[in-house]
Amino acid sequence: MFIIFTDLASWLIYDLLGLSPETKLGTALHFFVEDVSKIFVLLMVMIYLIALLRVSLDVERVRDFLARKSRGTGYILASGLGAITPFCSCSSIPVFLGFTSAGIPIGITMAFLLTSPLINEVAVLLLLSLLGWKFTLLYVVVGVLVGVLGGLFLDAIRAERWLQSFAAKALKGAQTQPLNTAEEDHPKITFAERHTFAKSETLEIFGRVWKWVIVGVGLGAALHGFVPDGWIEAHLGAGQWWSVPAATLIGIPLYSNATGVIPVMESLITNGLPIGTTLAFCMSTVAASFPEFILLKQVMQWRLLAILFAMLLISFTTIGWIFNGLSFLF
């Protein structure tokens, strides 16, 4: 079904503009048009369909649900729900405090918040269409694992010691005297309401991510057309162990959402960058960013922030090494 986008790009670049598929510029532009048109159409259709389904899923419901779960299942559920629950990244702090003041352990809250930027429906969709189901499955499993293990670790070191005092107080208060999290009345949602929500979601998300797609695919196209074949493999291949931590570090100051980085992933992998190095780079770009950390400072002390930061760096690097080691499977 994706052949139509290849045809569109061929018609536009080779027939209309008269560029030759033999030239670098020709192939780079062809790649750009094909990917941008494909991603735009997929995004519009899928965001709308998914929004129709998830109208009734909001952070309040998730919190009430998690507050009633035991610790053991809590981490996995929180991480999984983080992947599918929509909320704007600027709500991270209120969400953190809302969970905390419901008495949810900090590790479970962080499992939710860590997975949230890594996995979302747009990211999964792009991965599926650009890199295939194997890689997508791998990405989702690893993303959820980062949340679960990160959460377990934070609770194991009793990270709540290093919250800002008002947040720590809220957590303590809620654990001794549980908040009333009785199910609120959720009115039934009509299809018309679902449609209105889905339409505004589609316009809102698309309005936010389209430029990232252009930038991401543009970079990808540049790599595709202009970096000599084999260069990446020879210089940054799996044999170079340091390339993984380097990729993680480079990813930190670069801040993008998953939508922008996935087209870049595609071209990095097709150009021969090992799968683990690519994963490390992309997860670090998406999940570890300075603006996010400055926000978290409002609820966490420096010490906890530093631990969190180190934890992310170490996990992304480990993920990179493991998957470079397993790359023969792909």
Partner: peptide, 13 residues
């Protein structure tokens, strides 16, 4: 201020 927002019991801004 997040501490103040918390008092309204609001999680999505």
């Amino acid at each position: 201020d997040p501490a103040q927002i918390m008092t309204y019991n609001v999680m999505s801004t």
